[in-house]
Design a protein around this nucleic acid. Sequence first.
DNA 1: AAAAGCGGTAAACAAGTGTTGACTGACATG
DNA 2: CATGTCAGTCAACACTTGTTTACCGCTTTT
Lengths: 234, 234
Amino acid sequence: MRSRKRSDGPSQPPGDGETVEAEPDGGRDWRKRRTRRALINAALALLEGERSFSSLSLREVARGARITPAAFYRHFSGMEELGHALIEDSFESLHEMMRKARAGGLPSTRMIRASVKVFLDHVGAHRAHFSFIAKERFSGSTVIRVAIRKEVRLWVGELAVDLSRFPALGKFSAEDLQMLAGLMVNVVVAASELVLDTPPKDKEALTRIYRHAEKQMRLVMLGAGAWDSSRSSG
Amino acid sequence: MRSRKRSDGPSQPPGDGETVEAEPDGGRDWRKRRTRRALINAALALLEGERSFSSLSLREVARGARITPAAFYRHFSGMEELGHALIEDSFESLHEMMRKARAGGLPSTRMIRASVKVFLDHVGAHRAHFSFIAKERFSGSTVIRVAIRKEVRLWVGELAVDLSRFPALGKFSAEDLQMLAGLMVNVVVAASELVLDTPPKDKEALTRIYRHAEKQMRLVMLGAGAWDSSRSSG
DNA sequence: AAAAGCGGTAAACAAGTGTTGACTGACATG
DNA sequence: CATGTCAGTCAACACTTGTTTACCGCTTTT
């Protein structure tokens, strides 16, 4: 049915539904991908405010992309399919973030704490995508929720692998490594959600959130240093 | 038609058979409170599934309460006011639980960990309420989000006060106590959200979540034991 | 017993919704 | 050049939505 297109990278500023950057060859399929992206951006723009995806109407999104509602169906069978495209688009941003965080080399106390800043900066720079994820994490349809959950679990798993190469964590069992990674991800996710609920220009509140999260991360690592998996009998 | 308990009351105080207020006298204001509650319950029932509050329609809720849409306005000025009533109702059960958790006496390592179970049990027993809170925490309108945030912050503050009476935490500054309390609340909130996304009969998955959260809480307390606020330059 | 208060119904309103069908015109292919 | 493909418009369909108006009947009060 729908062959995978060229990986249309997520655009950054979905301010208006029709700004798209790609190599313009003016062709027909190029034009189609162009308005497809306009639809995604229009949805993200609407979602950046208070609206939730389930409250978005098909006509509204089409309007934001300067398209008639009937033309919407040339790209998606309905809103649900648009939702999937939004997930794909947003997770591309999430994966980029994960790649960025792991690029620092072997894990170390300093690097882990630095990652907090990298994550939160990335979230702040891609508000629309992460705002969508944060909202739909618990509020969306089941398929969307499980997709998001899968990605978070994957993220935790990768972090656990990274942590296993951290010599100071020798006393951790495999399960406890997952537990630790989950705790760390929790800290970052919670801080991300605070960042999303803070106006970007309120630098003071943002640095307060950053410092808060970094402290929490440090405390968690302190606890990890004192942990002994052999004592973890339920 | 999903009826909650036999009693329409949101939460009956642990008092014994002594009924002090709201005895069914069939009077007019009693009848009014009765349908008001029917509206709240109808909304909660709709919210218990995949729906989000913002996607709920006034007529839909009225229909669920077997009421004409016009009669809805006899109780609430609109959906937003219903939202506030839902928050009030939901946090009433939360406060009830917090009272229960603090009644155990002075905080101790054992009690803190036991509180995890108490809390998660409570969440599981009041799915509709906490499902609403979890969904609207990031997805709702600003006023609702702010209201929820205020309650959570209040909760963190109370926990920080309790922790300050914990002799082992002498090295914590006031700010760091908030940080620690925030971290602990994060652990419980994250676990709660997992509980809400798990079918109640899947006991195995639930106990896994419980154990996970308890471990995380223990690790946090381990970290707190090694914390030194004087080192928190930042 | 009469009057007032008030929770409820029924009907109507404009406005917005998802979806369909017929049509159009620029592009791609023969 | 001719032709078919197809992203797009336009109009109409049968809804559902929030809100207002008038009215009814039971409680409460006078």
